[in-house]
Design a protein around this nucleic acid. Structure first.
Length: 439
RNA sequence: CGGGGUGUAGCGCAGUCUGGUAGCGCACCUGCCUUGGGCGCAGGGGGUCGUCAGUUCGAAUCUGGCCACCCCGACCA
């Protein structure tokens, strides 16, 4: 993409409403625009990031055997009245009426709807287990939205729902999602720590939340430093014992948010040198809730013995739009964002230091075309301007690699390649540049 | 929902106390110049001063209502 043809309204000054760093940087880099409290438009740069995050989430859900669907944002209230949550959910649920006066709502979550979909489509244990998910906008009318996209009222969430014939089978479904979450966050360059959690309004028996570590996170977390070195091996999701062992492994070490933290247990279980107190941001939450929704909604299947049983379910959420902010919280510096490669809006920022000069223009055009031809996503700053401004903007938007072309380097036939994260620069011969990026 | 705060140009702000018809920096437009870390010079465009009402000869400024947004606390992907 040529910057001269792009839409990227960057700001030099911090908008005053943005206190938290990710919010500031998202506004300054022109990723989002606020429309109302907790309600954002995603501009081109931000939208690219959102799509990348979404795609990683999707791929890992698919790999774990979940099947993608898409449910509407607007739901009829009937099912919620059956489950009892129409009253229970409170003011957080945005209630609306259609022209006929029929009660509708903007979905804050989808347990009722998906359970009804499953009930209607499956009658036999032979069609189980199943896990259906979608990635859709949700609305929760938070008392106090804040922190930019990290606590919006409208937000993009991946929510998956598992259906099993027994509690034991359901446990495996839960475990698969647990592992899929670890993989998902790791792929985004994040350290995610799973912690035992309250089940809250979703209800249920077993629940974990996943927090990624960031100094500016809103929750205080206490954990065993072993988490930082735990590695996830490739896993066969059909291997029930192995998946369970992985979950056991990742839940064996101490980890708790401040409200669940037990200082005494912390000291007993974790040697002093491994005790870490840090901050984190919740980006995922999984629940097992058994028959909580299948019973009121009449979701039964016929078992091998011919008897009907209520299906066992869990639900599994990842805050996709929240992740965009959370990743910035976890990865930035004074100059701006530092995108982990897998979620970066572009991989390479190409800087033409003397746009308008036929030599640098020609060199940049060639490099741009060459990298694009290799499938590398390049944002090419082809606009006239001073070097300082260009560098500052490129640092702000945080693309992993910068390729800098100027008259000085061209004279020697070299480009400067800068790593955004480390700041390390190296000179690369122009004719070796293409090869440099295939490595 | 309780407490605090802010609304003046795209962004950041001054002006409000003491009423006289709106200004600065950045950004933007034109021209010249410059180009290796937020250049320089000259010229220019852009604002129902959140909104409604009141006081006044006259309101960004004083009074009252309303709205929006932000921050701190109790709740959440």
């Amino acid at each position: 993409m040529r910057l001269s043809q792009y839409f990227m309204p960057i700001l030099r000054d911090d908008p005053k409403e943005a206190e938290i760093v990710s919010h500031r940087l998202m506004l300054r880099s022109g990723m989002v625009r606020q429309e109302a409290a907790g309600n954002y438009s995603w501009l081109p740069l931000g939208f690219r990031v959102l799509k990348k995050i979404e795609q990683i989430v999707r791929e890992e859900q698919d790999r774990a055997g979940a099947i993608e669907v898409l449910m509407p944002t607007i739901q009829p209230a009937d099912l919620w009245k059956k489950s009892g949550r129409y009253e229970a959910y409170g003011k957080e649920m945005l209630r609306i009426q259609d022209r006929h006066g029929r009660d509708m709502l903007y979905g804050p979550t989808n347990e009722e709807m998906i359970t009804d979909i499953f009930r209607q489509g499956v009658q036999s244990y032979k069609d189980m287990p199943r896990n259906l998910y979608h990635i859709q906008w949700k609305f929760r009318d938070e008392v106090r939205p804040r922190f930019g996209v990290m606590r919006g009222r409208e937000f993009l969430m991946k929510d998956a729902y598992s259906f099993d014939v027994s509690r034991e089978a359901g446990q495996h479904s839960y475990n698969k999602m647990f592992v899929a979450y670890l993989r998902t966050f790791a792929r985004m360059g994040l350290k995610a720590v799973p912690m035992r959690a309250e089940t809250g309004p979703i209800g249920g028996t077993d629940s974990h939340e996943f927090l990624i570590l960031a100094d500016t996170g809103e929750s205080q977390v206490f954990f065993d430093s072993d988490f930082l070195t735990m590695d996830l091996k490739d896993i066969d999701y059909d291997d029930v014992a192995k998946v369970a062992a992985t979950v056991d492994y990742f839940t064996s070490a101490y980890a708790a948010t401040d409200d669940k933290h037990d200082p005494k247990e912390f000291e007993e279980r974790v040697p002093e040198a491994r005790r870490v107190a840090g901050r984190g941001i919740e980006v995922g939450h999984i629940f097992f809730f058994g028959t909580k929704y299948s019973e009121p909604l009449g979701c039964e299947v016929q078992g091998a013995d011919g008897k009907k049983v209520f299906v066992q379910s869990g639900s599994y959420g990842i805050g996709v739009s929240r992740l965009a902010g959370a990743i910035i919280e976890a990865s930035h510096d004074q100059a701006g964002i530092i995108w982990p490669e897998p979620v970066a809006p572009f991989s390479v920022g190409l800087i033409n230091l003397k746009a308008g000069d036929s030599e640098t223009d020609a060199a940049c055009a060639k490099i741009y075309a060459g990298l694009e031809a290799k499938g590398i996503e390049v944002l090419y700053d082809d606009r006239p301007g001073t070097p300082g401004t260009k560098f500052a903007v490129m640092d702000l938007i945080g693309l992993p690699t910068q390729v800098i072309i100027g008259p000085r380097g061209l004279k020697d036939g070299i480009a400067e390649v800068k790593d955004r994260k480390t700041g390390a620069r190296q000179n690369v011969a122009l004719d070796a540049l293409s090869a440099h990026f295939s490595a």
